[in-house]
Simulated assay, not measured.
Amino acid sequence: MDRTNVPRRLLRVVGRLAACVASLSLICAAPAFADQLEQHNDLVNKFITEMHADPLVADCAAHGNFVASTSTAFDHVEFPPSSFDSAHSSVTPWNDSFDEGKQRVKVDSIVTVEGIGVRQNGSDDPADLKFRCGYVGPQMLAFSWNDPVPPNRAHSGSSGKHKGKGKHATGGKTTKKSSKGSSGKSSRATSSKSATKKKAR
């Protein structure tokens, strides 16, 4: 009886410990998220009150600043007052999908804003960054920017970028040609194999 109760007690203790660890991780994550949200809201308020930015443009710029700061290339983004003029930002009514890729979500407005990306090492020249945000009402549903280090293509180098451009430019014709070429090669290979078998006989 005692032997069967010991494993059960251990399982209960382990289960309680796991629950405590899970709740602690949630407690630790909550303040970090709250800090990010507070920083975002402070930045939005600053852009609106000090630089007279449109609220959606201000929100897009604040989100762009956060995303760029997570990049390996940039420390932060600077938005001078000119970022919020009509030459460097816009709110365009839109009743279509945000893009033709993974973010094919339908939005009712597209916001663009430009900023200056300050590099992490500080020695390189700053980069001109362009942020594009898709909204339904005040809610952002999609986001893109001209990240010089795309997260999924960083390891593939420039060839990965050219592949992406090629698909858009040619509408996938390059893939069809390459598949025809490869099928031709395989048929030639099989015919040459059968010819060698006949000779062997």
Rank of each mutant, 00 (worst) to 15 (best):
H168S: 13
C133S: 09
V57E: 01
S178I: 13
A34L: 03
P126W: 01
F33C: 13
V67L: 12
K177G: 11
S187G: 06
C28H: 11
S86N: 12
P151K: 09
D96C: 06
S86V: 12
D59E: 07
N146E: 02
P126I: 00
W94R: 10
L37T: 13
Q39N: 14
C60V: 00
K165L: 08
C20P: 02
S90R: 04
H155R: 07
L43V: 08
G157I: 05
V14L: 15
K46N: 04
G64Q: 01
S97I: 06
I27K: 04
R12G: 13
D124S: 13
V14M: 12
S82V: 14
D99Y: 00
N41M: 13
D124K: 10
V107M: 03
A73S: 12
G160K: 11
F143I: 00
G184T: 07
L26V: 12
G160M: 11
F47T: 03
L141N: 06
N95Y: 02
V111N: 01
V107N: 02
I110Y: 02
R104I: 08
A34Y: 07
H40D: 04
S71T: 05
C20T: 06
A154T: 09
K177S: 05
N146P: 04
F47V: 01
Q139Y: 14
A68E: 09
S156R: 10
D147W: 00
F47I: 04
I110T: 00
K197Q: 08
V91T: 05
A58H: 02
S83P: 06
G164P: 02
G181R: 06
H162V: 13
K173V: 07
Q36L: 11
R12E: 15
I110A: 00
R104T: 13
D108S: 02
G172D: 03
Q139C: 10
S71E: 03
K167H: 10
G157T: 01
S69F: 01
S90W: 02
R8D: 14
K102E: 11
V67I: 14
S179M: 10
K163H: 14
H76P: 07
S178W: 12
D54N: 05
C133H: 03
S82N: 12
Q120A: 09
T4L: 14
D96H: 10
